[in-house]
């Protein structure tokens, strides 16, 4: 399967914070959700993918091209949406379009007008008077109007109301009907992902914990509940992290088969949500 984004052994170090040895592939034609707690390095990774930051070591390829020689070709094919407004806030949407549109070879005015109508965006009001949701819609209208093949979004749903979040997901699904398109977006609202994500990349403290299809995640990870007596040094190996309570234990496993072999019917196995996985993974660190 073709990879649209490929990070090989990418490391970027800051004072007191770093993203290390990231190997990440984003598959063409699918939606990859990028999850992780605040400060895990999601924005840093996205900035490196956009060439706003350069990695200390490692290799980044977008559409199989690198930024040293193909920066314009790459960005021509990317639509971006960031958490905050990056457009000149004193300007109205019409003027912003006038600045952004000529940058792209494949800018489509008709398409843009269609989105402006659909999102009910005012063309003559300064962007700074827009609500968070409207700013987001404006960014999206701009990102989707030049026939981009890859949409990169940093926390697009943060601060949006549930209705607009749902509308946004519908719109993205519409976008994905064309199989040549790819979406990569970071979020910490994991319910957004249940609906549209095909792959989940999970970043924790600057390290990529996994990048798997949602089916692999569902088949490998599970919550296991049982009596505390069942746990010993050997059986504990099957778990990523264990919570003990007087009433019994609850643990996360990343190997459901091993748990089945070890415990059989003596434990209850439940589907683990992405939130469960993030929560227990975090626990693992303070535990070790």
């Amino acid at each position: 399967m073709e990879n649209v984004v490929e990070l090989k052994n990418v490391t970027k170090k800051f004072k007191g914070f770093s993203v290390e040895n990231i190997d990440l592939q984003v598959k063409k034609g699918f939606v990859t959700g990028f999850i992780g707690a605040n400060g895990a390095g999601k924005s840093t990774t996205i900035k490196m993918i956009m060439n706003l930051l350069k990695p200390d070591t490692g290799e980044i390829k977008i559409f199989g091209l690198d930024y040293q020689t193909h920066e314009k070709e790459i960005k021509e094919r990317i639509g971006f949406v960031y958490d905050g407004n990056v457009f000149f806030e004193g300007l109205n949407l019409k003027d912003i379009k006038r600045i952004v549109a000529p940058a792209y070879k494949h800018w489509d005015d008709t398409l843009f007008e269609q989105f402006v109508d659909q999102f009910e965006l005012p063309l003559n009001k300064a962007i700074k008077t827009f609500s968070k949701g409207m700013q987001m819609k404006a960014s999206l209208a701009i990102a989707l109007s030049h026939h981009a093949e890859l949409i990169i979004m940093d926390e697009p749903t943060a601060g949006l109301d549930p209705i607009f979040r749902r509308e946004l997901l519908n719109l993205l699904q519409e976008f994905m009907v064309d199989g040549n398109r790819t979406i990569f977006f970071s979020t910490h609202i994991t319910t957004d992902l249940d609906r549209i994500a095909d792959y989940i990349a999970f970043l924790q403290r600057g390290e990529l914990v996994f990048n798997q299809s949602i089916h692999d995640v569902a088949e490998n990870y599970a919550l296991v509940k049982g009596r505390v007596e069942l746990l010993d040094r050997d059986t504990e190996k099957a778990f990523v992290h264990i919570h003990r309570a007087p009433t019994g234990f609850e643990a996360l496993t990343n190997n459901v088969n091993a748990v089945n072999n070890t415990f059989g019917n003596s434990v209850v196995i439940e589907r683990a949500s992405l939130e469960d996985i993030m929560y227990y993974m975090k626990g693992r660190e303070s535990y070790v």
Binding site: M50, N51, L52, E71, K72, E73, I74, K75, E76, I78, F80, Y82, G84, N85, V86, F87, F88, V100, A103, Y104, K105
Partner: peptide
């Protein structure tokens, strides 16, 4: 004066410009 804002640089560098 406009360009000193970080957002402007993020915008310009995300568009197809080197």
């Amino acid at each position: 004066g406009y360009d000193e804002k970080a957002e402007t640089n993020i915008l310009l560098n995300s568009l197809p410009y080197t």
